[in-house]
Design a protein around this nucleic acid. Structure first.
Lengths: 269, 269
DNA sequence: TAGTGGTCTAGACCACGTT
DNA sequence: ACGTGGTCTAGACCACTAG
């Protein structure tokens, strides 16, 4: 028996619902927009994930179990899960079950780091050094893209990623202060995990997707010093906006990448 | 009755095939690798597309028709088509049919041009000017990535893309000479279509997918002159390898992008 | 009205992983 | 042996497009 009571699904076709009547005789509200059963189920599953009903790394209930919960056939649940798996929110494992995606897995560690070494091969193990972490009132642009009220509190992090001995990525990161209550420089420095794994574990915020805008810019004096390149060296400037469940933006990030030994890889479909 | 005789599908499970025996009593060859019916069908469909049995823009046969051709249920054909649609090789249109993707459509014109104006809005209509087109023996790197024999003939194109009056993208493009027989500067200059639409229409080569590697580099004297920026201005350097049906590489492209008014947009999942 | 893709069901069986 | 996801079928009906 599930802890959460799912809303009744709205069928598209006019089945005679008199059988199994539960005594609830609500006046049917004007249903503005129908959507297929499997999409309604998908929405409910995302809400459960957002609510933390199943945590990253855990299994969700089996298809048969969900089918009986929602009173639909297995195939319909299956189609909902198919879409969530295609969006990397769930991971199917034949014979074992369907699991909530997590950043705490070696396989997926570099999903959001698009920088690869020029020689090919795996992204060299990166070492991360947090340079700064402070709380401030959200600058106008940050408030706008993170959908915060003007002047709301945000956390700003500056960190440096190095491959081997070569400092390569300088990131400035802005997070909603409300979501990341209790995030301090000390905790960041003590943390061993990749950032997104840390955010997931320590604050229950899962990064699912991000949009990025890339530019080539000259290194300013500060960045040049930190990245150990001559001033005006061309750097890759990466603006990232990351989203969690429901497409809510939760992180803004501005990165400067050295691309003398690495490149940013992407794919066009 | 189809012009092409499809190979027999290999079922995974051991149905008794004696009914409907066609008199062909071949000794069953050792089947090394099974794959689900819908994947075998997917492979056959890709082969048909590659062979040009259905041209870009045209409809493929209906699901029911294909089901009867392949002697499987509609659902199985459907799943094959689903995957091809997810890969942008086919486009479904409810009530009308399923169509072969084409670059000759306003909606999809900018699928491969990831550059967007900073102000937002649609990518401004770009004007393309072909600066050069010549045939030469493939340089080593080109031969390697295009999977050509050393010294085989290739076509090299240089072209400039401008937004409004601002020259913005300088591309060097290499194509297999064999595939693009008869491609000349004159035909390129006369052509009005976007390049990929032209390639599709005039040479039957469909670009389906591409991998890109991005770097920030300083403008060399030549690029600086053409793009009308000071020497050493940071430019986005984009290495592209494009693939057609069956994952065969057919175009190598090296671009230099001005990013003072535009940015390269991408998405991380 | 006919034809196409889209949704949904119920049931059978296969493949994989664990017990 | 059992439970999980994966494949396949046959059939019903819905939604959209066009003649």
């Amino acid at each position: 028996m599930p802890a959460y009571r799912y809303p009744r699904l709205v069928l598209r076709h006019a089945h005679d619902e008199s059988s199994g009547g539960s005594g609830v005789a609500t006046a049917a509200p004007a249903q503005a927009a129908f959507s297929p059963l499997y999409r309604q189920i998908k929405t409910l599953l995302v809400q459960s994930l957002d609510r933390g009903e199943w945590k990253p790394g855990e299994a969700i209930p089996s298809e048969l179990e969900l089918a009986s919960r929602f009173q639909v056939s297995q195939g319909t649940v299956r189609k909902a899960i198919d879409e969530l798996a295609a969006e990397n929110m769930l991971v199917r494992r034949q014979g074992k079950g369907t699991f909530v995606s997590t950043h705490n897995e070696a396989r997926v560690r570099y999903r959001f780091l698009r920088l690869a070494p020029d020689e090919g091969g795996e992204p060299a193990p990166a070492s991360s050094r947090v340079l700064d972490c402070r709380r401030l009132r959200a600058p106008q642009e940050v408030a706008r893209v993170l959908d915060l009220r003007a002047g709301e509190s945000v956390v700003q992090i500056r960190r440096l990623l190095a491959f081997g001995d070569v400092p390569t990525v300088l990131d400035d990161i802005w997070l909603s202060g409300a979501l990341f209550r209790g995030l301090t420089l000390e905790r960041l420095v003590r943390n061993e995990l990749p950032l997104y794994a840390f955010f997931e574990t320590a604050f229950g915020v899962s990064m699912l997707r991000a949009d990025e805008k890339l530019r080539a810019v000259p290194a300013n004096p500060e960045a040049a010093a930190i990245l150990e390149v001559p001033e005006h060296t061309p750097l890759l400037h990466v603006d990232r906006l990351s989203y969690t469940y429901g497409g809510r933006p939760v992180e803004m990030r501005r990165g400067l990448y050295r691309t003398d030994r690495h490149h940013y890889r992407t794919s066009v479909n």
